[in-house]
């Protein structure tokens, strides 16, 4: 059945695939997750703010990002970020932004919208009385959020946050539209060079499956271990 295929191509190229491609993919995933959760949490706090201008601004941003296809946003930012950068620092020429930086900014901003909705649910899952108790002790808004509400919100939402991160891990493969060399991109290059498309893409699929599936199992395990004693 596999007579016409040459799986040696994997053996010849896997070092390159993982060293260049997977490093890009994992670094992008990890940094976009950290950045996305950070900005997503800020957005969630804005959305729940009693100042309507903040909540409308955050709500508008989240709805905009969630209404656009990710590929489009990647494209758009790739061409726009150099100009925005130039405008921000007042330079005449577009700023040179590497494809990795461009991807990182895109994914951070895009995922922030999704993490925002998760954190919003998390913050709302913490009983109103907890906020009252914090305020009653004299804690201000930031201390009440930072010491009481957010730690509980994170714990309640950790499984969902990680599930979203697994999705992010898969979505990073879309950077192929700007020819960035992530894991899939690296494999595509080898596949096209050696004309071994079926072999390479099968291998890539298997690797994505193993990583994503293991992460989901890990999430399930974590879920039972981190629950707050009530």
């Amino acid at each position: 059945m596999f007579a016409g295929y040459d799986f040696d191509v994997i053996q010849r190229s896997w070092v390159y695939l993982f060293r260049d491609g997977m490093t890009f993919t994992l670094t992008l995933t990890a940094l976009a997750m950290v950045g996305g959760i950070f900005f997503g949490t800020l957005l969630a706090m804005m959305r729940l703010s009693r100042f309507s201008i903040l909540s409308y601004a955050a709500g508008g941003y989240v709805n905009l990002m969630r209404s656009l296809p990710l590929v489009l946003v990647i494209f758009w930012f790739f061409f726009l970020v150099p100009y925005i950068g130039a405008w921000l620092i007042g330079a005449k020429d577009p700023v040179k932004v590497g494809s990795f930086m461009s991807c990182l900014i895109t994914f951070t901003m895009f995922e922030a919208a999704y993490y925002c909705e998760i954190m919003r649910a998390g913050i709302q899952s913490v009983a109103r009385g907890q906020v009252w108790a914090g305020y009653a002790l004299g804690l201000n808004y930031w201390l009440t959020m930072g010491k009481i509400v957010l730690p509980q919100a994170f714990r309640n939402m950790l499984p969902v946050l990680l599930t979203q991160t697994v999705i992010l891990f898969q979505d990073t493969s879309l950077v192929y539209v700007i020819s960035a060399t992530d894991f899939l991109g690296a494999a595509a290059k080898v596949a096209n060079r050696d004309y071994r498309l079926v072999e390479m893409y099968t291998f890539v699929a298997a690797v994505y499956f193993i990583i994503s599936f293991s992460l989901s199992l890990l999430v399930k395990q974590l879920q039972s271990r981190i629950a707050i004693i009530r």
Binding site: W132, A133, A136, R155, R230
Partner: peptide
Amino acid sequence: DLPKLRSRIGMVFQNFELFPH
């Protein structure tokens, strides 16, 4: 300065509201 004022008044709630974490 509400936080300062509140810190001088103790309050006990119906549902205790200890911080569970």
